[in-house]
Simulated assay, not measured.
Amino acid sequence: MFRKQFILCLIMSLLITLTLSPYASAAAIEFTDSLQAQFNATADKAGGTTRTKLIKQYNDFKSEQKQAMDWDDRISALHYANEAKISEVRKRIKDIDKDKIRRLEEQLQTAKAKSQHLFDSYTRLNKQITAAKQLKDKTLSKILQSQADGMKIVVTLARQDIRNKQAALTAAKKDKTAKAAKIRSILSDIDPYKSKIKGDKSAISTPNKLLSTEWKNFKAAVKANDAVRTSDILKRLLTLSSQILTKKKSIYNYEQKIESIIARAQNQLR
């Protein structure tokens, strides 16, 4: 079990490492040393309260970008973990009561095989009785009927045993179907959250594009040492990044909801 969990975690790690996060920002925001130097020069040139304001805006934006990356990592890790768990649950649904059903099937087949010779003998005996009656051989009919009456109890018990085993197998299969349906119903609760995640990802697209454009404007403004324009752009950048952060937090919350639903499904498999 531990080895299986280890392999699952390794696969998830590789997926997270090798696969581009579906939640990551589309905007290429890089805080290079040269950009920092240009910004410092712009802030220093402005001086006073403007310098203080610029530095706070810039640091706040850098902080929000770091948060956005952290949320991307958390979302991706939880998302891939959830997908792996969902896959495992669906696989285990197929194996519900597998051993129990196989055992009942074997018991039924064994009972049928053991009783078949008895049933064949009883059938032949009854055919002989019919033939004796047609020949109007009362003595033979009486002897054969006596034998048949003796076998009837054993045959009845054997047939009842087979019916009981068939009923147990049918009930087990019906129970499996009910359990599987219940778990699938629980998993279906995930769908609305996946739709909400899709909606939030779509909602992030617009501010991401605007963020990319504003970031280009920001680099041009600091290069030109335009403090007023730099501040205005930073204000817009903060607004956009705040919108993106809100959506990413929302996506993570939905992934947590999905995680809880999966846990409910897993509990039904224990």
Rank of each mutant, 00 (worst) to 15 (best):
F2A: 14
K4Q: 14
I16H: 06
I16Q: 03
T17A: 14
S21L: 10
S25F: 02
A28E: 13
I29D: 04
F31I: 08
D33M: 07
Q36P: 04
A43N: 02
A46M: 04
T49E: 12
I55H: 02
I55P: 00
Q57E: 07
Y58A: 00
K62N: 10
E64V: 07
E64W: 07
Q65L: 11
Q65K: 06
M69Q: 15
D72C: 08
E83D: 14
A84R: 06
V89I: 14
R90S: 06
R103F: 15
Q109S: 13
Q116Y: 10
S121Q: 13
Y122M: 07
T123A: 13
I129D: 01
T130I: 05
K133M: 11
Q134I: 12
T139H: 10
K142F: 15
K142C: 07
L144Y: 06
M151K: 15
K152V: 02
V154T: 12
V154D: 08
V154M: 10
T156Y: 07
T156N: 12
R163Y: 08
N164Y: 15
Q166F: 03
A167M: 09
L169P: 00
T170M: 10
K173E: 11
K174T: 12
T177E: 07
A178N: 11
A178Q: 13
K179Y: 05
I186G: 03
I186S: 03
I186L: 14
S188A: 15
D189P: 02
D191E: 15
S195K: 11
I197W: 00
D200K: 07
D200A: 13
A203T: 08
I204K: 02
T206N: 14
T206P: 04
N208F: 03
L210P: 00
L211D: 00
L211E: 01
K216N: 11
V222D: 01
V222M: 03
A224S: 10
A224C: 12
D226Q: 04
I233W: 00
K235R: 13
S241F: 01
S242I: 05
I244G: 00
K248Y: 03
S250F: 05
I251Y: 00
Y254Q: 04
E255Y: 03
Q256F: 04
E259N: 12
A263W: 06
Q266F: 01
L269D: 15
R270Q: 15
